Amino acid sequence: MLFQSGGPVNDILSMFMGSPVTIAWLSDPTLALVAVMVADIWQWTPLMFLILLAGLVGVPEDQVRAATLLGANPLQRFTLIVLPRMKTIIGIALAIRVIECFKIFDTLFIMTGGGPGVATETISVYIYKIATQDLIWGYVAAIALSILIVLSVVCVWALKRMARVRA
Rank of each mutant, 00 (worst) to 15 (best):
R85A: 05
A66K: 12
Q76V: 05
I136C: 03
G138E: 12
G113N: 10
L75D: 09
G71V: 01
G138A: 15
I136Y: 08
V82P: 01
M111F: 13
M86H: 02
V125E: 11
V140K: 04
A95Q: 04
F105R: 06
T122I: 06
K160M: 05
G117M: 08
G117Q: 06
A119R: 13
M86Y: 02
I110P: 02
W157G: 12
T120G: 09
F105M: 05
I123W: 00
L135I: 02
L148R: 09
L69V: 05
A67S: 07
L70D: 04
W157N: 10
S152N: 15
L159Q: 12
V154P: 11
R97Y: 11
L69K: 03
Y128S: 07
M86W: 00
Q133Y: 11
L69Y: 03
A141W: 13
L145E: 10
G138I: 04
T122E: 01
G113H: 13
L94G: 10
A144R: 12
I96P: 03
S124N: 10
R85E: 07
V82N: 02
L80H: 01
T88M: 06
P74D: 15
R97C: 10
I136E: 08
C155H: 09
L75F: 14
E100A: 03
I127P: 07
L70W: 00
F105T: 05
I123A: 03
K87Y: 02
I110N: 07
E100F: 05
G117P: 04
T120Q: 11
T112D: 11
L70N: 00
E100N: 02
E100P: 00
R85W: 04
D134H: 09
A95E: 03
A131V: 01
R65T: 07
L83I: 00
W137A: 06
E100D: 05
S146Y: 15
L70V: 03
A72T: 03
Q76L: 03
L108K: 11
A67R: 00
L145R: 11
A141D: 13
T120Y: 13
V98E: 08
L145I: 15
Q76E: 04
W157E: 08
A144K: 13
F105N: 05
V150K: 14
Q76N: 03
T107A: 14
V156I: 15
V140C: 08
L148K: 09
G71S: 00
L151T: 15
N73W: 06
V156M: 15
I149H: 12
V153K: 08
I143A: 03
W137T: 07
L69G: 00
V118N: 11
T68G: 08
L159P: 04
A66Q: 10
T68L: 06
L75P: 00
L135W: 02
C101H: 11
L145Y: 14
A93L: 05
F109T: 09
R77E: 04
A142L: 13
T132S: 07
I147Q: 14
L69N: 00
T122D: 04
F105E: 00
P84S: 01
I104P: 01
L148E: 10
I127F: 07
P84H: 05
I104N: 01
G138L: 12
Y126L: 09
I99L: 15
I127R: 09
V125I: 15
V64F: 01
A144L: 15
W157V: 13
L75W: 15
V140L: 04
